[in-house]
Design a protein around this nucleic acid. Structure first.
Lengths: 330, 330
DNA sequence: TTGTATGCGTTATCAG
DNA sequence: CTGATAACGCATACAA
């Protein structure tokens, strides 16, 4: 194994001092280096395959170049994943490395983690435990909050709050003339937090509009209860509108409706969330809500740049974060 | 912001030298420190909230403590995710930090990355480009290969190869007396590599058994072609057996079967892969194959420990990596 | 048993 | 315009 190439090696090979190498490699404008020397150093560095030592640089600078995403146990397959990718892209543009930490449960482990990783900042998606918070603080690195679940109007609300997702679902169902609404979530632990936020919003919105808000069910692997409930709810109402937590849940609702002998969308309308790949593959194809969390990614990058005193990326032109995809399930 | 606490601070506060602090904190058995001093130093460190600087340690040790997972653009929602979590758990047990890098396309970016992150090792899931490979080599850190897609018998095959997944699907369908087989994949870029490997296996196995191996389709958002093909294939055969790439794809097949007026499982049987949450929610519930990649995680940890000269974790008792979940779609 | 001295690779300052 | 030097925080061989 070839021993690591240091800046001293480059300097020696190029016949200049380490300082000159450093100047050249960091493009320091204030340092006056002959163009010839410059190119020579550059060429030598490339020839030797020189790569600076991140550890040394971090030690020297007192700050690392890693942005660590402290991810909850979320399902990152859908729109959340797109937001994370955007955060990664923006971070890279800022000259930092974006790495994800998905500890099964990082209660109190953040301290250990920060003892091994020289981070420039951490991005959190949920409130940290007090020990974790203290660990971040005592490491002297900023915490960027991207709390997608924050309550609407809360200090860390980003562009989309969960309430407006449910609002859009309900608005659509009511536009279709439906007044009897139900909410169905899945007992998927990875989605727990989001499900609770949506459920609360459902209750609040229905109450506000004078509609029944107690038609609620959480679905697990067994559909029999859902089938039964759909039958009952449907009998009570003219036409039932189901706001499903996600497109997955909506698939369950479609199956249950079929088992209950309910026609979709005539007797039962269902709307999902996320515009998953299979949403157009169900029968009938799912009406759903597509979230665009790209702007969230940019917002995070802005906070990051501010905290780290880096040039702030420009916000994207205002795109609509929520859009309704109408198919035939409603 | 409180300035970082260094080991010198602890030494000063405890009235001992930096070296003593270092001895105590690293539990060096060969260093002879009074138990009293030991405890005093430990207490002082805790009181001041001392956490070592990873950068300094890495610089000194010449090696970082981060295991970087270089992830392809895979869907990490299913079984792959479980394998990754297991890798994380094992890595943590080894005293290292497991971080994931999901570059949208990290062609040639690995060099940059390694210029910012002091890694102990990288874990790859696909062959690296030659530049990337060189970057890893010149950084002097080991590359651990967890190439789940490696061809059976290949040097980096882990416990499960994609061919045996398809084999299990086909065996099950043939056990049901089905001789007319089809393979349906999804045009999901995140699953591309896996889909290709499975397709190749399907072709080979059918050929070997003297069955038709040209009933193959890749499904996108539009189901009309699938509906048409299922009709044709079904007409040609007594009972059609569909090996679906995943449970997602299987859902598409169920929809298409319904649209084509084919009874499941009497006229058409379908088997998926992954035992996704919704697999039991479809109508009829999906027969599927569950993969247990936990042992893969352990295997990776063993390679890691070997490369890094750390104590090697013991392999789990041999569990079956593949299991058939029989429901009513076959 | 504890303290001192040195080096890891960078970069910034200052003298040449 | 360039070269020497110090310091970042830690670990350890060696001296006391």
């Amino acid at each position: 194994m070839a021993t690591r190439v240091t800046s001293a090696d480059v300097g020696r090979a190029a016949g200049v001092s380490r300082a000159t190498v450093s100047y050249v490699l960091n493009n320091r404008v204030d340092a006056r280096v002959t163009e010839a020397t410059r190119e020579h150093v550059l060429a030598t560095a490339r020839r030797l395959g020189y790569h600076g030592s991140p550890a040394a640089r971090a030690l020297r600078a007192g700050r690392g170049e890693i942005v660590m995403l402290l991810l909850p146990e979320w399902n990152t397959a859908g729109e959340i994943g797109r937001a994370l990718r955007e955060i990664g892209r923006q971070t890279t543009a800022l000259g930092l490395a974006c790495l994800r930490y998905e500890g099964p449960e990082w209660q109190q482990r953040v301290a250990n983690l920060l003892g091994m990783v020289t981070a420039a900042a951490v991005v959190t998606f949920e409130p940290l435990s007090s020990e974790d918070q203290e660990a971040v603080a005592s490491a002297g690195i900023p915490e960027i909050r991207a709390w997608f679940l924050d309550s609407p109007g809360g200090p860390h609300t980003t562009h989309i709050d969960q309430a407006s997702v449910v609002l859009t679902q309900i608005d659509h169902l009511m536009d279709r003339g439906i007044r009897d609404l139900a909410f169905v979530a899945a007992e998927e632990p990875h989605d727990q937090g989001f499900a609770e936020a949506r459920l609360a919003a459902f209750r609040a919105i229905c109450q506000e509009r004078g509609l029944r808000n107690d038609r609620i069910l959480s679905v697990d692997d067994d559909l029999t209860e859902l089938v039964e409930r759909l039958r009952v709810w449907s009998k009570e109402s003219g036409r039932l509108g189901v706001a499903a937590f996600s497109d997955f849940t909506a698939v369950g609702v479609l199956s249950a409706a079929s088992a209950a002998g309910l026609q979709v969308p005539d007797e039962l309308a269902v709307i999902g969330v996320d515009d998953a790949r299979f949403a157009s593959l169900t029968s009938p194809p799912l009406t759903t809500i597509k979230l665009d969390l790209l702007s969230e990614g940019i917002a995070v990058a802005c906070k990051l740049a501010t905290a780290l005193e880096l040039p702030i990326p420009e916000a994207d032109s205002q795109r609509s974060p929520l859009s309704l995809i109408e198919r035939s399930s409603t």
